[in-house]
Design a binder for these strands. Structure first.
Length: 856
RNA sequence: GCCCAGGUGGCGGAAUCGGUAGACGCAGCGGAUUCAAAAUCCGCCGCCGCAAGGUGUGGGGGUUCGAGUCCCCCCCUGGGCACCA
């Protein structure tokens, strides 16, 4: 054994050994319980960032721990390889996205291997490879034929200068990120997954997932947003024809307070009204500026304009004006809303701004209504009762909704309806680097899905996008084809799929990566995933889409389970400070924190010494350029230090603010572990303690060892909190360092303790543990030690002594002492007499094993 | 704007079911070792106070023998908002 801890040498040796023995190759084995441990696969952006290190170390700790505890473990890895950054790199460097992506994959694979993760690399997949995406195309055609996928118009961000569709991320303050042009909304045809058909099941399914964090389930439930309300109609007559304007509301009880209705700018009524109204047409055009992102829509100034059209109130027949509102979303509900300014805060503000009437129809006892300012109670469903509402006066929320709904139904002007906030999933992307949508457009046959025997539709990999439009449109060899149905010349669809489609089923493909079909029987051997680990930022979209896709695959007979992920661990983000400079046009340039230093309390760029602006502490991301490269850490200290530090710095679910300090401490601990083992082994080999009389010190250390074994198992398995598991081992090592003596019994206990620490830390720092095990117990694989219950027994325990709830001292009592004996001993103690000043106790609280509180 | 989290020493964090606030680590301070330094080892380390003691978990209120933990209100920070992944 080397006296010095040399991480590079031992890590290389351990990794070579694992590779040689195929230690992590997973095989189906019905004799053992399976444990499918999956970390969200990375986007191959170039190099690993700290978020990856954190994510995959968490997964690796759980995978290795479960393997030690007798599970048949599968831990695969792959690449979420399609996406926008590859096109951006192509624009910047002139490299085809495919070449850029494959080079990144090679680099990042080597980095992952250097971190020593227990991954079955034989199952590696990349979503940009035809043998992966062909099955996605195959399923698409099946679902298209079933009607689960359909085509409709949808609104996108359009850059009029670059003549291209922009992602929401590419719209900055309403302008295109490259051109700086004002972004417009544009309607184009897109393919949609009918996810709303599964809304109820996706909602109900959350209750079958006890292994998911409550907060994620709450977010998903709110996202699906099931609400019951009333769909009702405002009749009107236009151009001599009778028609109805439909709206949906959860507050039908306020129907008598409607003073206007608001429609979206794209609503047919708005379009019709604008025909002879240039001012309105101009306003509608204005509404079409800006991004389609909901956050932008919700935070922009609420504006509106009267269309001049009137509709009739469904119950009173009273005339109600129709306005266009820039805050009304065409894609949600009916594209129109009824406005009750008195009882909806947004309508209230809008009515005051435009001088529209505010009519109170709900009252709360003891409160006075005023049109001057909004008060919380105006919108209170619980306490409010109807007023100024004719026959509905005096009814509470529920009764009023039911009565009004019944009356509307009798008139044929409304019905009770369940509404979801969830919208169908539009998957068409006007981009090159994605999975081609397997549709052929034929003048005679319409949209024809590509037959299975003609799949995959292969994406050409030699393309370099230039930032304007989809380059596939310029590839005649791709676009021109024969209609699969009639054989006549036809055009291939050039839109590609949302990359969320690839990441919605990769977890299943890992079970059978070589299958010559989408999935084979092995999928059911491994699914559902026992532990899924990934960033909290995926709490809604990715996880909802994957759950949805799993149900689609189930309904295709490909899997038997209802849910893909039995247990979910949402790791917090690795965040870091951001710094930027802004040019005259308002364009921001972001600088890496590594290139920034503080001079006289001002952040400046190291290269030019001029100040930069601090942009807050945010998720490490490419766009903010605040990622920290873990490679330097690995190069300097080794993989085990990087792993130990990321696991020790914060519990997995919390966000982790990056700082370089602390890494040194993790490395110091490993050196100390190494040195203590070396020192111990200088005395020659010794067997671990296996029985016999012990002194106080050795007995206490053994108790701590076995307590720690219990705690660490609980921390890893149940609490999934690795920082405290590591801290417990540090405490144990601190105690071991204080154990003196070289007699055989003491050395046996020291051997047992070191073996225990090596086993407990093996999932976290596997390389050093592998090397230490080879010295401590040559020829024996690391095994999780059984807890010795007899070592845990204590004769005496210490209780906390309080007087009036304040800590005043401690009390040593026999472990078996009963309540009365403890109370007597407490009352007799010196501290109690001093602090009670002789007053008789009013109450004595005894919490067994914890404390005694004397109340006077 | 809406939905979901979080806020504890100089810093990262611990306190698992309402029961000793600050485990463990970083930084700092003092000492040992050394020609010297690094490394290592030992000790101290919330704040006020010489001490006794008081005080302290974003702010305000409440429940309780006892609140970081439960309830109400407020402030701040982060994540998501459907085309970043």
């Amino acid at each position: 054994m080397q006296e010095k801890y040399l991480p590079q040498d031992i890590e290389r040796a351990a990794q070579a050994k694992w590779a040689h023995t195929e230690a992590f190759r997973a095989h189906e084995d019905p004799a053992k319980p399976k444990y499918y441990c999956l970390s969200m696969f990375p986007y191959p952006s170039g190099k690993l960032h700290m978020g990856h290190v954190r994510n995959y170390t968490i997964g690796d700790v759980l995978a290795r721990y479960h393997a030690m505890r007798g599970f048949n473990v599968l831990q695969p890895m792959g690449w979420d390889a399609f996406g926008l950054p590859a096109e951006n790199a192509a624009i910047a460097n002139g490299v085809p996205p495919a070449a850029w992506t494959y080079a990144n994959i090679d680099h990042m694979r080597a980095q992952l291997k250097a971190l020593g993760f227990a991954i079955d690399w034989s199952r590696e997949l990349a979503t940009c490879k035809p043998d992966y995406y062909r099955w996605e195309q195959w399923l698409f055609t099946r679902l298209f034929e079933k009607g689960v996928i359909y085509k409709k118009m949808a609104t996108v961000n359009w850059d009029p200068v670059d003549q291209t569709v922009l992602a929401n991320e590419q719209v900055i303050d309403g302008r295109g990120w490259r051109s700086g042009a004002l972004v417009e909304k544009r309607d184009i045809p897109m393919y949609f997954f009918r996810i709303t058909q599964y809304a109820d099941e996706l909602l109900a399914g959350l209750d079958t997932l006890p292994g998911w964090p409550e907060r994620v389930k709450t977010m998903q439930a709110n996202w699906i947003g099931k609400s019951t309300g009333v769909r009702l109609a405002f009749p009107y007559e236009l151009d001599g024809r009778e028609d109805r304007l439909w709206v949906f509301t959860t507050r039908a009880d306020t129907l008598m307070g409607v003073t206007f209705v608001a429609v979206a700018a794209e609503h047919p009524l708005a379009t019709r009204a604008a025909e002879n109204n240039p001012a309105l047409a101009a306003f509608i055009a204005e509404c079409k500026q800006g991004s389609v992102a909901e956050a932008d829509m919700a935070t922009m100034e609420k504006k509106g304009m009267d269309t001049g059209l009137k509709v009739a109130h469904p119950l009173t027949g009273e005339e109600v004006p129709v306005w266009v509102g820039n805050y009304v979303l065409m894609s949600y509900g009916e594209g129109a809303v009824m406005a009750v300014p008195a009882h909806d805060e947004r309508d209230f503000g809008f009515a005051r701004k435009y001088g529209l009437p505010i009519r109170q129809v709900i009252a709360v006892e003891g409160e006075t209504f005023s049109t001057d300012a909004w008060a919380e109670w105006y919108g209170d469903k619980q306490r409010g009762v109807c007023v100024n509402s004719g026959k509905y006066d005096g009814l509470g929320h529920e009764a009023a909704v039911n009565t009004i709904a019944a009356d509307l139904e009798a008139l044929g002007l409304g019905e009770t309806k369940t509404q979801f906030r969830l919208r169908d999933w539009g998957i068409s992307r006007q981009r090159y680097w994605g999975c081609p949508i397997p549709i052929v457009h034929c003048d005679h046959c319409g949209d024809v899905p590509v037959p299975a025997d003609q799949l995959p539709v292969v994406l050409p990999e030699d393309v370099v996008p230039d930032g304007s439009g989809n380059p596939l449109n310029k590839r005649a060899d791709f676009v021109n084809c024969a209609c699969p149905k009639c054989g006549q010349p036809a055009r291939r669809e050039t839109d590609t799929m949302d990359t969320f489609v690839e990441s919605s089923w990769y977890y299943a493909r890992y079970a059978c990566p070589d299958a010559n079909q989408m999935l084979d029987a092995r999928a059911n051997d491994w699914l559902p995933v026992d532990q899924y680990i990934g960033g909290i930022e995926h709490a809604i979209l990715h996880l909802l889409y994957a759950r949805f896709f799993h149900k689609l695959m189930r309904d295709e007979g490909l899997v038997t389970s209802d849910e893909p992920f039995a247990n979910l661990l949402t790791q917090g983000m690795v965040i870091a400070e951001t710094f930027y400079r802004e040019d005259a046009s308002g364009k921001k340039t972001w600088f890496s924190p590594a290139d920034v230093e503080t001079r006289d309390g001002v952040p400046v760029l190291k290269s030019d010494g001029a100040p930069v602006i601090h942009g807050g502490t945010e998720k490490m991301s490419k766009s903010k350029n605040n990622g920290v490269d873990p490679q330097a850490l690995i190069d300097q200290y080794g993989a085990d230090t990087a792993r130990l530090f990321t696991m020790f710095a914060a519990p997995p679910e919390q966000s982790l603010e990056w700082s370089d300090a602390g890494v040194e401490g993790a490395n110091r601990f490993l050196r100390r572990l190494w040195k203590m083992t070396w020192d111990h082994l200088q005395g020659g080999p010794v067997a671990a303690y296996a029985g016999g009389a012990l002194g106080d010190a050795t007995k206490a250390l053994r108790r701590q060892l076995h307590q720690t074994l219990q705690k660490v198992a609980d921390d890893i398995e149940r609490r999934k909190q690795f920082n405290t598991a590591i801290a417990a081992n540090m405490e144990l090592m601190n105690a071991l360092a204080k154990l003196e003596g070289d007699d055989p019994m003491t050395r046996a206990v020291r051997q047992e303790t070191l073996e225990g620490v090596v086993a407990m830390l093996a999932p976290i720092v596997p390389h050093i543990c592998e090397a230490l095990q080879a010295e401590l117990k040559p020829g024996c694989a690391i095994a999780w030690p059984a807890v010795d219950e007899s070592a845990l027994v204590q004769d005496e325990i210490e209780l906390v002594l309080q007087v009036n709830g304040k800590l005043r001292g401690a009390l040593r009592v026999p472990a078996a002492a009963d309540r009365a004996a403890i109370e007597a001993q407490a009352l007799a103690s010196e501290v109690v007499r001093k602090h009670t000043e002789g007053k008789p106790p009013k109450k004595v609280v005894v919490v067994p094993g914890r404390l005694v509180n004397i109340v006077v």
